[in-house]
Design a protein around this nucleic acid. Structure first.
Lengths: 337, 337
DNA sequence: TTGTATGCGTTATCAG
DNA sequence: CTGATAACGCATACAA
């Protein structure tokens, strides 16, 4: 049987130290009006009883709980996880705890979760989207700060942070250009995703700035290996001189690499391939390992936490902050990297 | 600007209903000693003010908070996520909220998180491991129920739930046998993982029961595509008659399939391949889609939540409960599935 | 059937 | 410098 060790209360500490509850409270909270010797006595007692202030009682009084809600619209989504990790990390370093909720992509469910969170008197809310397109702002009856991560809010007055897909696309193109490629194709994913267009725009800008045009119009499809395979075949048939391929995701890149290899092309000697996302299980196991664009999602989560923290502290930000991506150079773009 | 709508208190409800606080409390909590007409009056007032009882105040009285801690030893790990989803789902359906903590595989950090959780007076704790090998029990000064998920506790008196890897291995072998394969090879992952040995044991049992022996001793290596490729080549060279391959993970299976195809083998006609984990992004995008063993991780999370719930209710379980795996049949073992 | 009083653990305000 | 005391919002034993 487990010992039912009731946690010590402030009263216990005060009694052990031989002072009043009020004095004990002041001593532990670093209030000025208390003699140094008394403070130490109290500190020692607290230590001896391994006293921890009850956050419920504290919250009841102060109105703040030291908790925040982390509301993901889709936990399955591969992108939510690193963001959550970053946020949890940033908060855990301080002393705020994180309530996890998964709305499973359902707006009704989301409303329900928000209500539950608010009823627990969270000090703030981070809403993590499954895809980087703008999403509706949470309805107005929320009286705590909210930060939208990955999927920005449609309301420009809200506080959002997301990945800079334009810059990411530019990064990819510039890297291929820097390795001397000039016959560059672009295969990306679902036309319905803003990210697909943003990454493309960034790539096109970079190519244009270098006086290069893509071998043909970018191919839209889906975010899958299968599409990557098919698109690569089509592209190579039309343009056998292809020497560089920008893919809208690592999955697409994996598929494209398989197809290219089967068509007798060496990577990266004949064709350099770059992906997007740095999904490690895919990128690291590719042959050769896949160069790609990393969105720094964990950092994004940390940033969201920071913004929420500031907002709770009374300094909210407004609008969408875009975090830059980072180039990961591996074997698919540079020989014997 | 957001309206600072202070949430209504029980006092507000009582005043609006024209009764005392005590009566309002009884009415809302379904206590018997209150006239029906009064109860309805109170209910309506509560509705009108959209009153929600303050969980802090309630927790201060009752000692329970309606919260649990979800402590993952490694959020990166692909296996933690579905388990968390299941647990969050099961709790969210009721009215308990989940505190998320990530120990990042660090024991010190874990202790720290446990302390933080306990100081918040969680009613219970779920500890999710990164790999299915037994892990040390949390030190004894915990006065709330704990359930270990995926990685069981070393202490048989603790309450644990994990995946039945032996049964999973058996399932894989039985499936290959059922498709008529008789020259079966086995490639698995890191020798240091109990799961590798358990899955192997299950497969060997099934083969033995069918009067079949594997073409050669199982190959241990790592849980990667690269190892899958290498092992498949070695195996095929030694036993060109291979017609079935059991892989310890989907990553290994993906690698093996690539190698087999490059050596001119058709899948599944020449060689049937089965994996383990049902890691969808890998399994569904394989050519052909990969048959595999699903560990029902989400169900495992739900079960952990259920066990914790029971333990909190005073009916703890002891020992390790093993949840059966499920066979996912796809194209890599059956033509035109 | 209803209301009054008390306490949960803390912090803040005021007197001593 | 220290100590009573009143909140915070709610639930319960007890009195009316």
């Amino acid at each position: 049987m487990v010992e039912k060790t009731k946690p010590a209360t402030l009263g216990d500490v005060a009694r052990l130290a031989g002072v009043s509850i009020a004095t004990a409270s002041k001593a532990l909270n670093g209030r000025a009006q208390v003699r140094e010797s008394t403070r130490e006595k109290v500190m020692r007692s607290a230590e001896a009883l391994s006293f921890v202030p009850n956050p419920l009682a504290r919250g009841l009084l102060s109105g703040t709980t030291g908790t925040v809600g982390l509301l993901t619209s889709d936990l399955e989504g591969r992108f939510s996880i690193p963001i959550m990790m970053g946020a949890e990390d940033a908060f855990g370093a301080g002393s705020t705890s994180v309530f996890l909720c998964d709305a499973r992509g359902d707006a009704i469910r989301e409303q329900h979760q928000v209500r539950a969170l608010l009823s627990r008197h969270v000090d703030g809310l981070i809403v993590v989207g499954a895809r980087p397109d703008p999403r509706p702002s949470l309805a107005g009856d929320i009286n705590v700060p909210v930060v939208y991560a990955y999927a920005p809010s449609e309301d420009p007055d809200d506080s959002s942070v997301t990945s800079d897909n334009v810059q990411g696309g530019r990064l990819a193109a510039e890297h291929l250009l820097s390795t001397g490629r000039r016959s560059i194709g672009i295969v990306t994913g679902d036309r319905g995703y803003g990210a697909a267009h943003d990454r493309l725009a960034g790539a096109l800008t970079a190519l244009h700035d270098a006086g290069v045009e893509p071998v043909q119009d970018a191919l839209f499809g889906s975010w899958s290996e299968g599409w990557g395979r098919g698109a690569a075949r089509v592209l190579l048939e039309a343009r056998p001189d292809l020497d560089g391929l920008i893919c809208g995701s690592d999955q697409i890149a994996r598929g494209a690499m398989d197809a290219l290899r089967e068509l007798g092309r060496e990577i990266p000697d004949d064709v350099a391939v770059i992906g997007h996302d740095n999904w490690e299980v895919l990128a690291m196991n590719a042959r050769p390992p896949l160069s790609t664009i990393d969105m720094n999602l964990q950092e994004l989560g940390r940033r969201a936490a920071g913004m929420l923290f500031d907002a709770i502290g009374g300094s909210p930000t407004h609008g969408v902050e875009k975090l830059p991506c980072r180039l990961m150079v591996r074997g698919s773009t540079t020989p014997t990297s």
